[in-house]
């Protein structure tokens, strides 16, 4: 099948499509659905305005492992919520514009590149894979994410990495207030500045900030940058394709004073 437009929706067309591109079958996809896809040299294109969000997500979520349909672009995202959420195979999805809330949420194995900005909760609860935002991110980027790599080339707003549980987050610009709040594991790398209350009630996540930190949250302290931290930071910057001298960063972490109840605080309750 060469370049051009495929209009599916009739059994005969689907059959042709099956014959040429197997495996394709997705039972809950249905025959009644009409979907326009354009095939460019390397990628299959879906259009949010014509295909609809739900159909696109179902299509992407149902790409089977081992499929040749590994490269997708999504046109006209127009800030729609939950775009490319719940992906679970190693495909590459490029979103050609600005996405809404929870973009690439719960991602597993997939690579999602956003050629624009994202709203609240990009890559929230990501398990693995790679999410890269070319523009800015709104608040709660990478919230509760367990694994994978989230890269934001621009700024991230408040609560970046809130309750992160193992994801690595690299931000080319600055992060807003309450970033890494209750962050449990993983690393947050910020090439710019951090806002108020960085790392409040932090557990074991590692925070690296190159610029200024407006204030540190409760139990978050600056820590010594040891060789193993420089090595980790060097690796993360390389993986994120960011150019910065690891020696120009400071490391922050938990003072571990909130881990256990202190009897001296009994009066406070």
């Amino acid at each position: 099948m060469g370049s051009g437009e495929w209009r599916m929706g009739k059994a005969s067309h689907l059959m042709v499509f099956h014959a040429l591109h197997s495996p394709f079958a997705t039972p809950d996809f249905g025959f009644a659905m009409t979907m326009t896809m354009t095939k460019t040299a390397n990628a299959l294109t879906l259009d949010v305005q014509t295909d609809g969000l739900r159909a696109i997500n179902q299509r992407l979520q149902n790409v089977p492992k081992g499929s040749n349909e590994t490269h997708w672009t999504i046109a006209n995202p127009a800030g729609e919520h939950a775009l490319a959420a719940g992906l679970q195979s190693p495909i590459r999805v490029e979103i050609m514009g600005t996405a809404g809330y929870y973009c690439a949420g719960m991602n597993k194995e997939a690579t999602v590149i956003v050629h624009g900005n994202v709203s609240t909760g990009v890559a929230e609860n990501m398990m693995s894979g790679y999410v890269r935002v070319k523009g800015n991110a709104s608040q709660s980027a990478g919230a509760t994410a367990h694994g994978g790599l989230l890269v934001i080339e621009g700024d991230a707003a408040a609560r970046c990495g809130i309750s992160m549980k193992g994801v690595d987050i690299v931000v080319g610009g600055s992060v807003g207030h309450m970033s890494a709040f209750m962050a449990q594991a993983g690393a947050l790398v910020v090439l710019g500045d951090a806002g108020d209350a960085l790392g409040d009630s932090l557990y074991e996540a590692k925070l690296f900030v190159r610029g200024t930190v407006k204030s540190l949250g409760a139990d978050c302290i600056e820590k010594e940058m040891r060789p193993e931290h420089l090595e980790l930071l060097t690796q993360l910057l390389a993986k994120a394709e960011m150019t910065a001298d690891p020696h120009s960063f400071r490391r922050y972490g938990s003072a571990r004073k909130l881990y256990n109840f202190s009897i001296d605080n009994a009066d406070a309750y």
């Binding site: 127009a78 809404g100 809330y101």
Partner: peptide, 13 residues
């Protein structure tokens, strides 16, 4: 309140 409210403005991209 959300970006999608701005998505139809000319030149928003």
């Amino acid at each position: 309140s959300e970006f999608r409210a701005l998505a139809t403005l000319p030149g928003v991209e």
